[in-house]
Design a protein around this nucleic acid. Structure first.
Length: 494
RNA sequence: GGCCCCAUCGUCUAACGGUUAGGACGCCAGAUUCUCAAUCUGGAAAUCCGGGUUCAAUUCCCGGUGGGGUCACCA
């Protein structure tokens, strides 16, 4: 057939023209993320959101959050809020969303836009592109099963349909011509071409009157003026359906950008709940910084073409380019995320680092003032990978540690119990009239070790163990200085 | 099974057809040092296989293998 369709397909920008320019030359860039509120938004969805958001921000365009809830039965309570909270936590602001309708196109919730879809199906029905079908779901299932058994793909055609039935009980399908050829330039996959004979006549309007994703998606992308459809790879094979609809409705096609999947630990299947696929809330709870998560996610399936790894949010927006999105799937590496988060914690100014730390302090820290806590933070932050580690690394600044058994000290320092007692009481005397500046502590402690011919490492470890209860801590003088004279002497005297 | 997509160190990735195949995480070693970190330096570590094109292939083509996606009144 259809020279008409071929022409439409061919009227698209040629292969030579960059797909990047298709969306951005004529119209202001508009992207959207369109999840269905059926559950948690996990890491893969978050990354897709990120790419959409970055691309809009980079181009001074708009980013829309649209809820695809046309399957009312699958809508999960709370999912909508969870999705919005996750995206907001990562600092990806939307220009229009479920909570922010547009004066131009209205609601961003599909169930509230039902009338729009019905409106556009009529011309398709009139032109014979769409038709009513009364085939029962049971019959459909049987047909599918048979196709399966015969090891052939299930491709529904009008000839298989039940064309008569009671008013209102039908679905509306889009008829796909066998000789249709649909081609397009995917911004990451390159030129794609599909044959109509591999595409079944798909349902556009369900028998309950709601549109399917396939239809609502196209209508909304058009009505909302979406220029770049950035979505997961799994949609690649339904793109021809969407394109056919754009063409038949006489609408301008957006640029399609199919991003690769994020893989689970085995490097094969997509990351799933079973792998502990997380949502943004989980990362918030473990004490990751939104900027670090964004930085990490951006580098999963995209790279700037330079050797830079650590980016601020602004640098990411500046550097991001959909032409550098990877084709193949990427594995999620939590170890690198930890490193990345540590880098971001260290990149913060002392003041904003302290601000970020606020809810992570151990219980005992509440009775201490800001300036004390801030000094502690500056001492321990280089050892932090995530905020949840703060209590473990800082507790001895706020409360006396559990006294260590002498055996433990012997094991760590090789000082016999008698020696321990002697050294500690000497140290107690030594520090009695110290001003407890780092310099003075250093002078006295080193001096004592030297005068008594002690291994500095062993001696310092002894003091550390007694004062902090831990085999590791920030530098000994800094630690003693911050804890303060009274408390240090009290701990030594125990 | 049909159709489609993908393939560089363990992982994330770079490389106009000509590079000692680069960087990062992790790992190992060293430096620093009172411990642990942080930091710096060095090291081990990769082009899935087979053909073809070419003076030259990680790069282009074909085939294989492996992995993934999709074939719903779900998105």
């Amino acid at each position: 057939m259809s020279s008409k369709n071929d022409k439409l397909a061919n009227s698209r920008p040629s292969v030579e023209s960059s797909p990047l320019e298709q969306g951005s030359t004529s119209r202001v860039v508009r992207t959207r993320f369109a999840p269905s509120p059926t559950g948690m938004l996990h890491i893969g969805g978050l990354r897709t959101t990120l790419f959409s958001w970055l691309w809009a921000r980079k181009n001074g365009g708009e980013f829309i959050l649209r809820l695809e809830d046309t399957d009312q039965e699958r809508v999960v309570e709370g999912a909508r809020e969870q999705i919005m909270d996750s995206i907001a936590w990562l600092g990806m602001n939307w220009d229009f969303g479920p909570d922010k309708p547009s004066p131009e196109f209205g609601s961003c919730v599909q169930s509230e836009r039902k009338d729009d879809y019905i409106k556009f199906i009529q011309p398709l029905l009139d032109s014979g592109v769409a038709y009513h079908d009364w085939t029962s779901t049971d019959d459909l299932a049987a047909m599918r099963e048979q196709a399966q058994a015969e090891k052939r793909p299930f491709v529904f055609r009008k000839s298989m349909a039940t064309l008569e039935g009671p008013e209102g009980g039908s679905v509306i399908r889009i008829a796909i011509p066998d000789d249709l050829t649909i081609s397009w330039d995917d911004a990451v996959r390159g030129t794609q071409e599909w044959s109509g004979k591999d595409i079944g006549d798909f349902v556009a309007i369900k028998s309950d009157g709601y549109p399917t994703y396939q239809f609502a998606n196209v209508v909304d992308d058009h009505l909302m003026g979406i220029t770049d459809v950035i979505r997961a790879d799994e949609w690649l094979s339904s793109t021809p359906k969407h394109l056919y609809l754009f063409d038949q409705l006489g609408w301008q096609r957006p640029t399609y950008v199919h991003v690769p999947p994020i893989l689970g630990p085995d490097g094969k299947k997509k990351l799933s709940k079973r792998d502990g696929a997380k949502n943004a809330a989980d990362y918030a709870e473990e004490g990751y910084l939104p900027d670090a998560v964004i930085n990490f996610l951006a580098l999963l399936g995209w790279n700037p073409g330079t050797e830079q790894e650590v980016f601020t949010r602004e640098q990411l927006i500046e550097a991001f380019d959909i032409s550098k999105i990877q084709k193949s799937g990427a594995r999620f590496d939590p170890v690198k995320l930890d490193w990345m988060n540590g880098m971001h914690i260290r990149a913060l100014s002392a003041a904003s680092r302290y601000e970020h730390s606020s809810e992570w302090w151990p219980e005992a820290a509440t009775s201490y003032d800001d300036s004390y806590r801030q000094s502690v933070l500056e001492l321990v932050h280089e050892r932090l990978k995530k905020w949840s580690e703060l209590p473990m690394l800082s507790s001895f600044f706020f409360e006396k540690p559990e006294p260590l058994g002498q055996d433990k000290i012997v094991k760590e320092t090789k000082f016999m119990p008698e020696e321990q007692g002697q050294l500690i009481s000497d140290t107690l005397k030594l520090l009695q009239d110290s001003d407890f500046s780092e310099e003075d502590l250093e002078k006295r402690l080193y001096g004592y070790a030297k005068d008594n011919d002690l291994k500095v490492g062993k001696y310092f470890m002894l003091i550390r163990l007694v004062v902090t209860g831990s085999t590791f801590s920030p530098g000994l003088f800094e630690t003693l200085h911050v804890i303060g004279k009274d408390e240090v002497l009290a701990r030594l005297a125990r």
